[in-house]
Design a protein around this nucleic acid. Sequence first.
DNA 1: TTATTTGTATTATTTACTGTAATACAGACT
DNA 2: AGTCTGTATTACAGTAAATAATACAAATAA
Lengths: 125, 125
Amino acid sequence: MIIRIDELSDVPIYLQLRNQIVMGISSGELKSGEKLPTVRDLALEMGINTMTVSKAYQLLKTEGYIMTDRKNGARVRTEIKKEAYISDANKTELKRIVSEARISGVDKQELLSLVETFWEGGRTE
Amino acid sequence: MIIRIDELSDVPIYLQLRNQIVMGISSGELKSGEKLPTVRDLALEMGINTMTVSKAYQLLKTEGYIMTDRKNGARVRTEIKKEAYISDANKTELKRIVSEARISGVDKQELLSLVETFWEGGRTE
DNA sequence: TTATTTGTATTATTTACTGTAATACAGACT
DNA sequence: AGTCTGTATTACAGTAAATAATACAAATAA
């Protein structure tokens, strides 16, 4: 899986990393039980610190997306808890994004199509 | 317009404030040309610093959402530039939110309905 | 056993952002 | 003249992010 970090983004590196993995799981690019790179390999490949990767893995573990084990490394969880719930923070963010799109004159159907595209795990460009 | 800040949120106060105003404009609660509270009034009402409100207003001004003028105060812009464009940052955020919802087992139609609700300027709870 | 590899923990340091505080200024209205 | 507006400045405290350099526990491989 290709992971790409935006140096200019306001989002911290460990969060960007966490987000990409979550999106990878959702799209099916990362399958159940699949082994993730070691913290050292990924840190080396991305040119960032080991602990930054570790932070991302710890967060993903806490959230129930992955399992980590010494020597076995990190793997995508086979059974991810499904609460069918959208957090308040995500709702607020979603509303902000929808509002900004609407103000800027984006077509409603275009936005809905974009959501569907993301739902299917697709890319936009 | 009622502005409500979440003390526990990771989002900085000035950004929350900016976001609420943008959402207010989108929903129609804040109309074109409508006068916004003065930085001092809003700061006093919200129990925050004057400069924090000023930061939000400056950001909104830079983004083209409002106009500010000494003595006249701040007003919602009558003509907001419509580029019909969703920023890359917003697309990334949207994809993240959609991914998280999908993984957690949220129904696709439910998510689309939520987007439509926000588009119409509605609330959820 | 010995060596290696894994995630993790610790400590320290640097950097940047946030929010506040206390003033002060320029311009426009009353 | 006085008041109200946004804005600018300077200083300070708190927090978070990222890195660096080690070290440890556990499991695998030699």
